[in-house]
Amino acid sequence: MSDAIRIAIVDDHPLTRRGVESILREQPDFEVVGSCDDPGVLPAPARFDVLVLDLYLGTDEPSLDVVGQWAEQVKVLVVSASGRAADVVACIRRGASGYLTKSAGTAMFASAVRTVATGGFALSPQLADILSGELARERRMRGGRPPAAALPASTDRPELSPREEEVLGHIANGYTHAQIATRMKLGKSTVDTYVERIRHKLQAGNKAELTRLAIERETAERTPPTDPRATR
């Protein structure tokens, strides 16, 4: 059908790949256009909308380069046996539009594909809760440094107030609303209000999507500019 969501699948486990393909083909608004164990033989990006990608493809290392390469061209939904927060954060930073564990049910899987295809962000519910632990660990490894200064405003980026930027930075560093309230010497209800404003401005539909946006912004803010002298 012309308005179907076109999907390609990459998984190096034949039985898992066939199971994923079977689930997707049962959905009337899905069209599977490719299914393989090697991303190198996928159809051209113009032929599909969503790539359902296994994170570990025959090695002990996550295929983050594959995530990054394809995320520049199509929506990438990572479906992995790994529920490690470090893997989730790494995939988000490489541009993945969603991350599900392979324990996700059929309905959640189908819903995640639709969410990703329409520009949203999908995440297994239990992963949204453990991301804060990983971000807090990274913060400790950086010596507990505060969030970086806000990026300069741009015409294609929603402008947040300084307070909203501060709240979003704390979210990216893994703090709960109550912890943010303590650090900023505000009431929790005030922090809740800031978070709702941020979600509205950034068009973040849920906690998972707000976490993704916070991680992406925090990553960009703490990436130092290239020093021209370094290439001399």
Rank of each mutant, 00 (worst) to 15 (best):
S124A: 09
V116K: 10
G120I: 11
G105Y: 12
F121C: 07
L100V: 01
R137M: 05
R139S: 06
E138Y: 11
A117S: 05
E134Q: 15
A96N: 03
K102T: 07
G133F: 10
T101K: 03
S124I: 00
G105Q: 13
F109P: 04
A110M: 10
Y99C: 03
A107K: 13
G143W: 04
F109A: 10
A122T: 10
G144A: 03
S132V: 10
V113K: 07
L131K: 06
F109W: 11
L127V: 09
S103L: 06
R114K: 12
G98R: 05
G119C: 13
I130K: 00
K102Q: 07
S111I: 02
S97Y: 12
M141P: 00
G120Y: 01
G144Y: 00
R140N: 06
S124F: 07
G98A: 10
A117N: 06
L131Q: 08
A112F: 09
L123I: 12
V116M: 01
L135M: 15
D129E: 08
L100D: 06
A96M: 07
R140H: 06
M108Q: 14
G144S: 00
R114Q: 10
Y99R: 13
A112V: 03
R114H: 06
D129Q: 09
E138Q: 15
A128R: 10
A117Y: 02
K102P: 01
P125H: 15
D129S: 11
M108R: 13
G105A: 15
Q126H: 09
E134G: 13
G143A: 02
T101M: 03
R137F: 11
L127T: 03
T115H: 01
R139L: 09
T115M: 04
V113D: 02
L100N: 03
G144R: 04
A136N: 04
T101Y: 00
A110P: 01
L135Y: 15
A112C: 12
L100G: 05
V116P: 01
Q126G: 10
M141E: 15
I130H: 03
R142Q: 06
S97H: 15
S132R: 14
G120H: 04
T101S: 07
R142N: 03
A122R: 11
L127Q: 05
V116I: 09
R142Y: 06
S111R: 13
S103D: 00
T101I: 10
L123T: 03
E138H: 14
R140I: 06
S124V: 05
A128V: 08
L123Y: 09
L123S: 04
G105C: 11
G144K: 07
V116H: 08
G133P: 07
A104W: 14
G119A: 14
L127Y: 04
A104G: 05
V116Q: 04
T115W: 02
A104D: 09
T106P: 12
V113A: 02
S124N: 08
S111A: 15
L131M: 13
P125Q: 14
